[in-house]
Nucleic acid binder design. Structure first.
Lengths: 71, 71
DNA sequence: ATTTTTTGTAAAATATACTTGACATTTTGT
DNA sequence: ACAAAATGTCAAGTATATTTTACAAAAAAT
């Protein structure tokens, strides 16, 4: 799976560590790491919580126009 | 949880049954039903597949500005 | 250079998304 | 009114998202 660089960038822009973001979103640091590294397929509610914490929208962080999205 | 009326509407606009959409997205009819009725918290990849099948984006079908989003 | 913080990753356990099969109710077509 | 198609829902099973604990490597700070 592909890394989520937009998310990593948005987090960096707010100067948050993975751990700080994890706490805001009430999830584990490992989960944040896994999402950023594209190691899996998070729940939409988690994505929404991450977006809110980072001041972005779903399209901005999780949508890509280009085809892709293999199983 | 809240029903996803936007999704229901988008599906209706294409004149697709839950079952037809389910097949396009390679998921069960029950799963589509559950998502529309807000009975749970789908995976983002499923949301993306649904969006693609319905010609909409994540923000259009799954994002709401207003607060909300209880656990 | 050496602490301290941040990040990657892994194995085992738990929670929950999703499936399968089945039946009841609602809606649509005739 | 009747039949057919579409939808709601439930229980039991399987797959996988997320947690917990833990350790090693990379980056930042002093």
């Amino acid at each position: 799976m592909a890394k989520n660089l937009r998310m990593k960038a948005a987090r960096a822009a707010l100067d948050l560590s993975q751990d700080e973001l994890a706490k805001k979103v009430k999830v584990t640091r490992q989960t944040i790491s896994a999402v950023e590294n594209g190691d899996y397929n998070p729940t939409i509610n988690l994505c929404i919580d991450i977006c809110r914490a980072l001041g972005k929208t779903l399209d901005e962080l999780f949508w890509n126009d280009e085809g892709g999205n293999k199983k």
